[in-house]
């Protein structure tokens, strides 16, 4: 299994009901169904990936994340997952809001634009970073909303989200010492588990 999915699956309880936003070829859902008796749906818009989902027996729904999740009821999923899609959606804050509405907990992964290599590239060349990890030119990229870990956490705070778990990993999804000590500089990918803040009554 893809390394980030291997990490995520540990945060998904057995028998839970899961919504996977941008589920790709359905790898996570297929694995969870087989090993953890997890039910649920994946949303995807790429025709080839949808076909792969169908062939794997994954419940895939052809739906564009940018059109929202209004067809899903409040609290209807135990976990809502969105891997590597935060930076490609038109309104990251709105999709997060929606995820928190339909799911009890949410798992989000995204690339860290605050990683030292991005900073180095921008500082020395004065141009938008292009690397193996982020191979797109600024004018032709699906990634339209890059952020750093700090940016993301500031948004979490603003949206009164509670960060339950977070893991900064390198490009190979290893949680090494560097990314543990100084995540916003040394972590390449962020894996967050968040929930709505429980408002305590006075």
């Amino acid at each position: 299994m893809r390394a980030d999915l291997e990490i995520i699956q540990q945060w998904i309880p057995e028998n839970s009901h899961v919504l996977d936003l941008g589920c790709g070829d359905g790898e996570l859902l297929a694995w969870l169904k087989e090993h953890k008796n997890v039910s649920g749906y994946g949303l995807e818009i790429d025709a080839d990936k949808i076909n792969t989902c169908i062939e794997k027996g994954v419940n895939v729904i052809e739906q564009d994340l940018d059109k929202g999740l209004s067809n899903f009821a409040n609290n209807s999923f135990d976990v809502v997952v969105m891997t590597q899609a935060l930076q490609v959606v038109h309104y990251p804050d709105k999709i997060l809001q929606e995820m928190l509405r339909v799911g009890r907990t949410c798992i989000i992964t995204f690339p860290n634009f605050g990683h030292w290599r991005c900073r180095w590239y921008l500082a020395t060349k004065g141009r938008m970073p292009v690397s193996d990890f982020m191979p797109y030119t600024w004018y032709n990229t699906p990634n339209i909303h890059f952020c750093t870990f700090k940016d993301f956490e500031a948004l979490c705070h603003e949206m009164q989200m509670q960060v339950l778990d977070r893991l900064a990993v390198d490009g190979l999804h290893r949680n090494n010492l560097g990314s543990r000590l100084w995540p916003n500089m040394l972590g390449e990918i962020g894996i967050y588990r968040v929930a709505r803040n429980v408002v305590k009554l006075a």
């Binding site: 009901h17 989902c53 994954v58 419940n59 052809e62 739906q63």
Partner: peptide, 8 residues
């Protein structure tokens, strides 16, 4: 909560 696949 039924199993469903939906394509357009």
């Amino acid at each position: 909560k039924k199993n469903v696949v939906s394509v357009e």
